[in-house]
Structures are given as C-alpha cells and as structure tokens.
Computed example of a mutant assay.
Amino acid sequence: MAEELVDIAIYVLAIANRQGIDLEGALREKEARNEERTWRTAGEQGEKDVRDLPHV
C-alpha cells in the first residue's frame, strides 16, 4: 500500500510542477481553510463513516 501511495504522490507532484502550482503554499492555504470549517459527522445526510466502507 505504501508503494502505491508514493506512486500517487509522485504523479501529483509532477502535475503540480508542470502546472506551476506551489503545492506547499496551496496545502498550507487549504489547511488554514479546513481549520475554520465546520465538519459534519458521519451519518449526516446519509454519508457513510469510512470505517463502514469495504476494505480493498
């Protein structure tokens, strides 16, 4: 699993680089927005808790 996640990270970094995206800056901005966000709990409006999803 770790190796697959690393492959995904490499792919995402390559896309960001080609598009001129400051991924570190974007990540920090998103984290700041998420800090202010109100998070719904699992089960609200029919969402499933990730623990209820099938294991692959």
Rank of each mutant, 00 (worst) to 15 (best):
A42Y: 10
L23V: 11
K30I: 06
G43T: 05
Q19C: 07
R18W: 06
Q19S: 10
E29G: 01
K30R: 09
A16D: 08
L23I: 12
R28C: 05
Q45D: 15
G20C: 07
G43N: 10
L27M: 09
R33I: 04
T38N: 12
E31R: 06
R40I: 14
E24K: 11
L27S: 01
G20H: 03
E29F: 03
R37L: 12
A26C: 00
E29M: 03
L23W: 02
G20V: 07
G43V: 06
Q45K: 15
L23P: 03
R33E: 15
N17R: 00
I15N: 02
A26S: 10
R37S: 13
L27F: 10
I21E: 03
E29L: 01
E31Y: 07
R40C: 11
T38S: 12
A16E: 05
I21W: 07
A26M: 00
E31D: 05
I21L: 05
R33W: 08
E24T: 06
E44T: 13
E44Y: 11
E31H: 02
G25E: 00
I21F: 02
I15K: 08
E44S: 15
T38Q: 14
L23S: 09
T41K: 13
R28W: 09
E35V: 07
R37T: 13
E35C: 04
T38G: 11
E44V: 15
A16W: 01
N17Y: 06
N34R: 08
E36F: 00
E29V: 04
E29A: 09
R37W: 07
R33F: 12
A42I: 06
W39N: 09
E36G: 06
E24S: 00
T38A: 13
A42T: 12
Q45P: 02
Q45A: 14
A42D: 14
K30D: 02
R33M: 03
W39Q: 14
L27Q: 02
G43H: 03
E35Y: 12
T41N: 11
E36W: 01
Q19L: 12
R18L: 11
N34P: 00
I21D: 03
E44A: 15
E35Q: 15
E29Q: 09
Q19T: 06
R33T: 11
R40P: 13
N34Q: 14
A42R: 03
G25I: 01
G25P: 04
E36P: 04
E29Y: 07
L23H: 07
A32W: 01
N34H: 08
I21A: 05
